[in-house]
Computed example of a mutant assay.
Amino acid sequence: MNADRSPLFCDTVLAERIERVEAQLIAKGSEAAHRRRPDTAGFVIPVAGGVASFAEEDSPLNKVAGLGFGGVPSAADLDEVERSFTACGSPVQIELAHLGDPAIGALLTERGYRLVSFENVLGRGLKREHECVTPTGVEVRPSGDDEFEQWLDVVTEGFAHPDAQGVPSHEEFSREVIARAVRDLAAAAGVMRCVALRDGVIAGGAGYRMAEGIAQLTGAATAPAHRRRGVQTALLSTRLAHATTAGCDIAVITTQPGSKSQQNAQRQGFDLLYTRAILVKRP
């Protein structure tokens, strides 16, 4: 990280922009799940600038995202959201940025929502040409459809074994559920794929999506046999370079608080922008 680099400051305008593209990502992934399984229950409901999504049973896409910047949801809005999740046998999980309207947190508390966890959103400005850093023996390239299953396998394996460092997630997902969600996001949300090869063998994979000048880093993973060889650094550096060339001015990543992922991102010049509170109401 350059010593003269100023930390990225996040105001409410930038937070609104990030939350808006996050809601778009969740909605597109959920809609893909509905197309894949049209016989199952599911919905995408706009709510106060955000979106309520139910993709399928136990999916990580079952949540309310993007609230806080489009006004306070009405009681009728929340009634509809809660009825929809209850009809699917699911609790309501709301991810609420701490830079959003504080009246929403107060309203949710009054309606019986409980704070269960937090997650951090980190960002890095992309205002100049970014140089790719790839260690000797590591190559990163776009991943084509012919190797989609290999890409999916390595990325899913990483998500299935999250960081042991830091605050543990309040959720656990099976490998099969993770694979379906990653497949849906890659298929419909505009997520671009890249793989890292080490000595000619696929050693890691990553995804990213670009929208409204924001590069969303949607996840990266390295196969256990290839860890601590610079694969993650190469995947991150390449995605940042591609995003800069495409005209993005900021890259963002979401991590668990105090996790190895957060530590690695900050080592690569990312700053903590804001925290999302995770609030849940059970049927």
Rank of each mutant, 00 (worst) to 15 (best):
M1S: 15
A3G: 07
R5H: 12
R5I: 13
R5K: 13
S6L: 15
S6H: 15
C10A: 15
C10R: 05
D11M: 13
V13N: 14
A15R: 13
E19P: 03
E19N: 09
R20W: 06
E22C: 12
E22K: 05
E22I: 03
A23R: 08
K28C: 13
G29T: 07
S30V: 14
A33W: 02
R35Q: 12
D39W: 09
G42V: 08
G42N: 02
F43W: 08
I45C: 04
G49L: 09
D58L: 09
D58H: 14
S59L: 10
P60S: 06
V64E: 03
A65Y: 00
S74L: 08
S74R: 08
A75G: 09
L78S: 02
V81W: 02
S84M: 04
C88N: 05
P91L: 02
I94S: 11
I94W: 01
G100P: 01
G100N: 01
A103L: 14
I104Q: 02
G105V: 12
G105N: 14
L108M: 02
N120D: 15
V121F: 10
V121H: 12
G123A: 11
G125M: 11
L126A: 14
E129Q: 12
V140Q: 07
V140A: 10
R141N: 00
P142E: 13
P142A: 15
P142H: 06
S143E: 13
D146G: 04
F148N: 07
W151G: 07
D153V: 00
E157I: 00
F159Y: 14
A160E: 11
A160M: 09
P162H: 04
G166Y: 09
V167L: 12
S169V: 01
H170R: 08
I178S: 04
I178F: 13
A179I: 03
R180L: 11
G190A: 05
A196V: 02
I202N: 00
A203G: 02
G207F: 08
R209E: 03
A211S: 15
I214S: 13
A215F: 04
T218M: 10
G219Q: 12
A221D: 01
T222W: 10
P224R: 07
R227T: 00
G230K: 04
V231W: 02
T233Q: 07
L235C: 04
L236N: 01
R239A: 10
T245G: 02
G247S: 08
D249N: 11
A251M: 04
T254A: 11
T254W: 10
Q256C: 03
Q256I: 00
P257I: 09
S259D: 11
Q263F: 12
Q263Y: 13
N264T: 04
Q266I: 10
R267G: 15
G269F: 09
D271S: 13
L272Q: 13
R276G: 03
P283M: 01
